Computed example of a mutant assay.
Amino acid sequence: MEYSKKTLSIKSWAEDDRPREKLLLKGKASLSDAELIAILIGSGSRNETAVDLAKKILNSIENNLNRLGKLSVSELQKFKGIGEAKAISIITALELGRRRRLEEALEVPKIKSSKTVFNLMQPIIGELQHEEFWIVFLNNSNKVLLKYQMSKGGLTGTLVDVRLVFKKAIELYATAIILCHNHPSGKLQPSNADKMITNKLKQAGETLDVKVLDHIIITENAYFSFADESLI
């Protein structure tokens, strides 16, 4: 008499089909969501493997791991073969995954180029209808210590207090700064006022040993870098 995998325990499967062994042999990326959940579950029921049970759970929430992470202990226990301990294991694993994603999102970025600055600041000021002037404060590894709005102006411009810029730099022990502001008009060319404030901040930074690395003008879809254009 032949038996399907569904009526056999995972231990009786071919080695490549066992989730734990598969992870050891081929790495974690080789496992499906169902196989990963099966490892958490450990065992299924008398007539169902842990993998089949995991597939059933995933099918119920349209294979959406975000929805799985929102299920309660009691909702998971509605599946035959899932007791309180197994439900808690699933919820715990998904919560750890959620916290890991959060930490990755908050990870301190490292500035490697003007494009990095644009990607960092465009979501903040790129689509505004008024002008804002921001400073990105960096440590000696060019990692961002703080993104700070120095001033907010109207359609025609904004003012920057040099003393406040370097007061903040000293408080943060920053070794470098990058100047950023947006042009609501969409024009990328720096104005005379842009060039003047850049030189003023650069000179002040030299006195305090805080380097002004760049000044980035940002619009909705593009940017202008003083450093790239050898203007700083």
Rank of each mutant, 00 (worst) to 15 (best):
I91M: 04
P109F: 09
K86N: 03
A29K: 14
L25P: 03
L138T: 00
L208D: 03
H130M: 10
F226W: 01
M196V: 15
Q129S: 13
A50F: 03
L53M: 09
H181W: 05
E35K: 02
Y223N: 02
L24K: 13
I57G: 02
G44L: 03
E104I: 14
W134M: 06
E21G: 02
R99M: 15
R99A: 13
E131D: 03
E220Y: 09
I41R: 03
I39A: 05
K115P: 06
I125K: 00
W134P: 00
V212M: 07
L68Q: 07
N66G: 12
F137R: 06
I57V: 08
S191N: 10
N192H: 14
T219I: 06
L24W: 11
E21M: 11
Y3V: 13
I218H: 04
A34N: 02
A85S: 12
A227G: 08
F133Q: 00
T175P: 02
F137Q: 05
G157F: 07
V160W: 07
N221P: 05
F166M: 12
I135M: 10
H215P: 03
S89L: 11
E84T: 08
R99P: 10
D209I: 02
L25T: 08
E75K: 10
N63I: 05
E104W: 08
L102D: 14
T7F: 11
D214M: 06
L128N: 06
S191E: 08
I90W: 00
I82F: 02
N192L: 15
A29Y: 11
V51G: 07
A29I: 11
I41N: 06
I88Q: 14
Y3N: 10
A222T: 12
I90M: 00
L40S: 12
K195S: 14
L128E: 07
D16N: 10
S30L: 08
L31E: 08
L36D: 09
K80N: 14
I91A: 02
I216C: 05
E95V: 04
T158L: 09
K26Q: 12
E75F: 01
K80W: 00
K5L: 11
I124S: 02
